[in-house]
């Protein structure tokens, strides 16, 4: 994350937040994402409490492609939501490029999310009333002026990257599920994020379409050097990443680099 791209407020909050992290003895400066002993518990009554994420620590360096696997309910989505600041941790710290997320105001945190994180969701997430081009440009409505280029030409360029430039004027309902996910990927890139969080982006797609989407992710990763955290529903997709993290019952039970296995596979 480029600190000159952050707001003055965010930057000063970052300076205030930093010593706290240093005290916790966690590495942060060289890591894009640094999660330290984070716990997320749901439910107010003791007996019905669910610990979705249980004292998880994870540090991700710039340019990594982390694939997170684990059974349903193991806390993968919750971990992504904790990293993006969409949900409040019950305990622990989330630091993005040296900035403690929860030391920021809602406005600053939203801004940081807008400028530095791209999202690809499991469910259809395009705004139905906007056409494809408008959907791709949507994040700019909430800020993103730091990018400093013509948003429409950038959106069109991204649409051609995902092979949908001729669908710019179409509405989401006119697209197939796979096409919609490609638009979502284009949307996630419009503000030149440092991190892409993808939650089972291909779980609703057939195998061929899944292959196409994964190839797109790989291309984006190679050409932009963006850091990707991707949750997948099947361990078959691990080989697309550079690092594999496995979760079970809210904990990380495996974390290892991926050898360049996939290229030898096909």
């Amino acid at each position: 994350m480029k600190s000159e791209a952050m707001t003055e407020e965010a930057a000063s909050s970052a300076r205030q937040g930093a010593p706290e992290i240093a005290d916790a003895g966690q590495p942060s400066a060289e890591h894009v994402i640094s999660v330290a002993d984070v716990t997320k518990r749901y439910g107010s009554k003791k007996e019905v409490q669910v610990t979705a994420v249980d004292t998880v620590s994870l540090a991700v360096s710039r340019g990594e492609f982390v694939v997170i696997t684990g059974r349903s309910g193991s806390g993968k989505t919750t971990l992504l939501n904790l990293i993006s600041g969409l949900t409040t941790p019950t305990a622990g710290h989330v630091v993005l490029d040296g900035v403690e997320l929860w030391s920021l105001s809602d406005r600053q945190r939203s801004r940081l999310r807008n400028e530095h994180i791209g999202f690809v969701f499991q469910f259809p997430s395009l705004v139905p009333s906007l056409n494809v081009l408008e959907n791709v440009m949507l994040p700019r409505a909430f800020g993103g002026n730091h990018v400093g280029d013509d948003v429409e030409s950038r959106a069109r360029m991204l649409l051609s990257t995902v092979g949908l430039e001729e669908k710019a004027a179409a509405h989401p309902r006119q697209l197939s599920a796979g096409q919609q996910q490609r638009v979502v990927l284009a949307r996630s890139l419009v503000n030149r994020p440092t991190i892409i969080l993808a939650d089972e982006p291909s779980s609703n797609l057939d195998e061929t379409t899944e292959q196409e989407i994964m190839e797109l992710f790989e291309r984006v990763h190679e050409t932009t050097g963006v850091t990707i955290l991707m949750v997948t529903h099947t361990s078959q997709l691990i080989s697309w990443g550079t690092r594999s993290v496995r979760m079970a019952a809210g904990r990380i039970i495996g974390d290892e680099p991926v050898a360049q296995a996939r290229s030898t596979q096909d």
Binding site: S84, L86, D106, R107, S110, R111, R113, N114, E115, F119, F121, S125, V127, L138, P139, A141, F142, G143, G144, R187, N191
Partner: peptide, 9 residues
């Protein structure tokens, strides 16, 4: 989704 894309409260 809009919140995720950076809309503040």
């Amino acid at each position: 989704v809009l919140r995720a894309l950076g809309a503040s409260r």
